[in-house]
Nucleic acid binder design. Structure first.
Lengths: 206, 206
DNA sequence: TAGATTGTTAATCGATTAACAATC
DNA sequence: TAGATTGTTAATCGATTAACAATC
């Protein structure tokens, strides 16, 4: 499927809409106007409508949006109507916390494989996952259809590990290492670095 | 100090420059051109120069930037020439992993206080920090000058906990809960939600 | 000096927002 | 129908980038 030309920044707001709509649905709400959604999500109503209009007309004029219907459409747009298996590489403190995190499974992301290079950690079971040797990455990935990786190795191992992942079919990496990864086009990388985010905050603190 | 009108998006790139410059310095490099920095950081050279020019002329024409000098200036701009004490609220798996994380201290962020409401966790020591009762938040924050919080409580407790933190002087929150916080102007919030980031990635996966 | 590279102005590009017709 | 709200066009705003003078 060829993607039409939707701005990345528009795509990046859709998950936020989806998250908030899920909350509202759980609270029993059924229909919502762009204006009310705007209050919850902190994004101007006109921008929400514009963003959605890239993909279709999901609302009813005079009424607003049927929440279930809109959730369903957003999930389709974001390819969330499937389980996404993931590999996590690096089972230290952070890696273990992520394996335990319930939020992934709730949204259809499943940590299907955990890899580490530490003999003390290989073979241990964490939340039902037995940690495998990172040396067996190729064999393990070959017999799976995992395309997403969580990268939680130390900074100095991040680049080479990422390259190995890509060589074995990984197409998207959520990178927790505090380093800029240099990877071929076509591989999507998102970075989570709390220190960088803190440094953005301290700028504004007097 | 009144901040002049620097675009947020410019500020948000500075920590990335700083991170990369620190790497380069550790590798023994002393001077770098915007072009070479561009390769490492993945941002166009002209944009790096433009960003920096909001704050001054840190380079030498014909030569480039003295790395130590530029790092020093960036640290000043971002208010990083001090230790920033932080409170973490919520000492579950993720909270514990963050307390253990060495990367904060390395960049001058110190978790000075850890709070939880679970009697089994209160009083335990993690990486040298004794977890306090969140009920004592006011007393604990009153006798500190903590202005930054890491929020790692469950989603349903995040909003009320954030409000309590703000009522006790917190000015910046790094929010790990998968929810949009609604807080008064003047409080800075940054969100870290791996699920939202994964959902941005799956959009592009066929 | 010649070459390299910065810092800045002006042009371009793209995103946000205002205005409003369409319509439930 | 009147009122409300969407979806879209056009205007505005702001960010990126091209061009280039300044200068080490």
């Amino acid at each position: 499927m060829v993607k039409t030309n939707i701005p990345d920044i528009v795509v990046s707001r859709l998950p936020l809409y989806l998250q908030t709509l899920n909350h509202l649905l759980r609270e029993g709400k059924e229909v919502i106007s762009s204006n009310e959604l705007s209050q919850h999500v902190g994004i101007p109503a006109v921008q929400i409508r514009k963003d959605l209009s890239f993909f279709g007309g999901f609302g009813v004029k005079g009424k607003g949006y049927d929440i279930i219907h809109l959730i369903d459409n957003l999930r389709n747009i974001l390819n969330l109507n499937q389980i996404w298996p993931m590999v996590i590489v690096g089972v230290g403190n952070l890696g273990q916390a992520l394996i335990h995190y319930q939020g992934f499974a709730r949204q259809g992301f499943e940590i299907a494989l955990a890899l580490d290079n530490n003999p003390k950690i290989i073979g241990t079971e964490i939340a039902g996952i037995v940690v495998q040797d990172v040396a067996d990455m190729q064999a393990e990935l070959d017999r799976s259809d995992i395309r997403i990786a969580l990268l939680t190795v130390p900074a100095n191992a991040a680049q080479s590990t990422a390259e190995a992942l890509v060589a074995n079919g990984i197409k998207a990496i959520l990178n927790y290492a505090p380093i800029v990864l240099n990877l071929p086009d076509g591989v999507r990388v998102a970075n989570i670095d709390p220190v960088l985010m803190l440094e953005r905050l301290t700028y504004y603190l007097s």
